[in-house]
Design a protein around this nucleic acid. Structure first.
Length: 293
DNA sequence: CTCCAGGTTCCGG
DNA sequence: CCGGAACATGGA
């Protein structure tokens, strides 16, 4: 039994770049399309030129999730004018920051510390399959991300069997604090960026980087600028060439000022570009070219 | 086998 | 404030 399909008109949108850029980890390729879950809705999506094919009834949900209303041309035009940013903008054309549900985004990034993207995806799938609600899509079994309340009932030992390592304690602790109401994600959503970041950092396993990922990918804070190992390489190689002793604080202050009101988008474009085009462990080999700031 | 991965936390200068 | 080290697990 196949649901009828509908077409959503898209401009400045690239589904491949959007789902393969390392912002969300559970979507799987299915022929020319992708299969995944938006909240509690399982679906297959496929892009054909300027059309996004989705199951009937999912048009609005998909359009919201994929942030088709973000003014991408304006966003890209706001990026600082330097060679690296121009290359990233060209490489990532059509990539959008999707609107992930806050908890699954936050939880996923709690499990991301010191893990490769492939591992993060693996952990996400395991957690969904074992503890998430089953949502069917045309016969395929997909799973929603387990709610904080469901996760809070597990033991650390149980969670550890999902290959989480030391992250199990953090994920469980965060789930319990949220389930018990010690941290209210709905309240976080109503706070300013700085206050929201402080609040998220009260959760175990959530430091500045994970908090910024949650803010950017789960709370629509398009200015949040997560600095991970890749972005740190980019910043050092491109904007601080041949400089010794560039502190984390220096990188943070520079990023907050240099990349502008859509800094989070700029960050994700640089992240994806560097990860796909720089040699592994890269940065050192890249020619610095010109300094943009 | 060694190295590293979308870090956080704790500890000593 | 800053640099190091521990923390688990699995690809490359």
């Amino acid at each position: 039994m196949t649901r009828p399909l509908r077409s959503v008109r898209v401009h400045d949108f690239d589904l491949e770049q959007t789902l393969d850029c390392g912002q969300v980890f559970h979507w799987r390729r299915d022929g020319a399309g992708w299969i995944g879950v938006i909240g509690e809705h399982a679906l297959r999506v496929e892009q054909r030129g300027e059309e996004l094919i989705v199951p009937a009834g999912m048009e609005t949900i998909a359009a919201h999730y994929f942030a088709l209303d973000h003014p991408l041309a304006e966003i890209c035009a706001s990026f600082p004018d330097d060679p690296a940013m121009a290359a990233a903008r060209d490489f990532c054309r059509g990539m959008r920051i999707v609107r992930q549900p806050a908890w699954e985004c936050l939880a996923t990034f709690i499990t991301s510390s010191m893990k490769q993207v492939a591992h993060i995806a693996q952990i996400s799938h395991t957690l969904r399959r074992r503890y998430g609600r089953c949502v069917k899509w045309d016969g395929a079994e997909l799973f929603a991300y387990p709610a904080p309340e469901a996760m809070a009932r597990l033991s650390e030992t149980e969670l550890r069997t999902c290959a989480l390592g030391y992250r199990a304690k953090n994920l469980l602790g965060a789930a319990r604090m949220i389930a018990e109401g010690q941290v209210d994600l709905a309240a976080v959503a109503a706070m300013g960026d700085a206050a929201a970041r402080v609040e998220l950092c009260r959760l175990p396993g959530v430091g500045e980087k994970v908090a910024n990922c949650a803010l950017l990918f789960g709370f629509e804070r398009v200015r949040a600028f997560p600095i991970d190992v890749w972005i740190e390489r980019v910043l050092r190689a491109i904007y601080f060439p041949r400089k010794r002793k560039v502190t984390a604080r220096r990188l943070r202050d520079f990023s907050a000022g240099y990349f502008g009101e859509y800094g989070g988008y700029a960050q994700q474009y640089l992240f994806h570009y560097a990860r796909k085009t720089w040699p592994r462990g890269g940065g050192k080999k890249l020619s610095p070219k010109k300094n943009g700031g």
